[in-house]
Amino acid sequence: MLRNLPPILSPSLLYALRAMGHGDEIAIVDANFPAESSGPDCVRLDGISATDTLKAILSVMPLDTFVAAPARTMQVVGDPDAVPEIVAEFQTIIDDTADKPARISTLERHAFYEAASHAFAVVQTGETRLYGNIILTKGIIEP
């Protein structure tokens, strides 16, 4: 056990977060996402929600301020302007937890899959709400 770290940050997830550099991306995905076959290392957090995972990760990882879209979600198929309830929750968590909050942008479904395939790691959560997927770009910790 460690102090001041959310206990859902498993050893493998902490390793991935620490090993990531500025500009690297991490995908937090729901239980339906093809995480194991997407390419990057897959860290499993079965039974943990995507929203709890996002909050825990943002408590230790800064978002990138050098890119226009450091937080990206998947668009609803057939309704790209829709904002699923979980995406609205993601935005609230970013606003409340990130050291430098950012507006979430969206990617078309297949573009999201492609972006996730280039992430440093994919965190497969137990999230059952549809569109519970978000890609974060790691920023820097200023001196």
Rank of each mutant, 00 (worst) to 15 (best):
A50L: 02
L136H: 10
D30T: 00
T51R: 14
D95G: 05
R103P: 06
Y15S: 13
S10Q: 06
K100G: 00
E142W: 09
A16N: 02
D99F: 07
T92R: 14
G78I: 00
T97N: 00
I8S: 07
Y131G: 01
R44W: 13
V87I: 15
T97E: 14
G78R: 00
D46K: 15
L63V: 01
L5Q: 09
L2E: 09
F33Q: 05
A88T: 10
S37N: 10
P40E: 04
P40F: 03
A102F: 04
A69D: 14
P80C: 06
S38Q: 05
S37V: 06
T73A: 15
A71C: 11
L5F: 12
A16Q: 14
G126P: 03
E114G: 09
R44D: 10
V29G: 07
Y15Q: 14
I140M: 08
L14H: 10
S49R: 13
K138Y: 02
D52C: 04
Y131W: 13
K138G: 02
A50S: 15
V43T: 01
V77S: 15
N133I: 01
M61T: 14
G39H: 01
A56F: 10
P40Q: 10
D46F: 02
E127H: 04
C42N: 03
P62I: 01
M61R: 01
D24K: 06
P11L: 10
P143I: 08
L5M: 15
P40C: 03
L17M: 05
A102S: 13
A69N: 13
K55Q: 15
C42Q: 02
P143N: 13
R109I: 09
I140L: 10
L63H: 09
